[in-house]
């Protein structure tokens, strides 16, 4: 592998972005990990119910959402690469692109929810839907939170708020968005596929 796009002379000791966000990325990953394991444990005592209702899910929509989030995450990587070269306008365009893919995710997910709610599914229907709705809605809210952050960063980038020497804000927003993507990468196979 030849040298990557940008070369670091000395490797930094802390991750990109503000350390405060990384405290919360770890906390969020912990919460989601606990929720995933509790989902897997709860599934053990009625596997038929979980498998049955898993079929009710729209796996294609889940696939689409995964592809959307991965692409959106990629756009954010390009945004960070752009700001590191001082390209503030290109950075903010990449960020808005990532933001719009986030919106697309919300649309697809919203459609799924609309479908479920119209069938009378609620948190109280049964164990599977309790976990399905809790996990996906909790992630859904994180996508909204991530989009709020991306929008704020994109606006500031548009106004030239960042430069080659100072763009921690972009990296902070990027790290949070990658966490939201990472969580979905595990949630999709766990809830939609594994049976």
């Amino acid at each position: 592998m030849n040298s990557t796009a940008t070369v670091y002379d000395t490797q930094p000791k802390s991750p990109p972005g503000d350390l405060a966000i990384w405290v919360f990325i770890l906390a969020e990953l912990l919460v989601f990990a606990v929720l995933f394991v509790v989902y897997a444990m709860a599934r053990r005592n009625n596997i038929e119910l979980f498998n049955l209702h898993q079929l009710q899910l729209d796996r294609a929509a889940g696939l689409a959402n995964t592809l959307v989030l991965i692409t959106s995450s990629y756009f954010v990587v390009r945004a960070v690469a752009a700001i590191r070269e001082g390209e503030t306008q290109r950075c903010s365009r990449w960020l808005w692109a990532a933001f719009s893919l986030g919106a697309l995710f919300l649309l697809i997910k919203g459609a799924e929810y609309q479908h479920h709610f119209s069938m009378g599914v609620t948190l109280r229907s049964n164990d599977f839907y309790l976990f399905y709705l809790s996990l996906t809605f909790f992630h859904f809210m994180h996508v909204i939170m991530g989009m709020v952050i991306l929008a704020a960063v994109a606006l500031k980038a548009q106004r030239g708020g960042y430069s080659v020497s100072e763009h921690t804000g972009v990296e902070t927003g990027a790290s949070y968005w990658h966490m939201v993507d990472l969580v979905w990468l595990i949630l999709f196979p766990l809830v939609y596929v594994m049976h």
Partner: peptide, 13 residues
């Protein structure tokens, strides 16, 4: 650059 830990970010969070 990386390694910063600002009060304003903590407050925003």
């Amino acid at each position: 650059m990386s390694g910063t830990f600002t009060k304003s970010m903590a407050r925003n969070i």
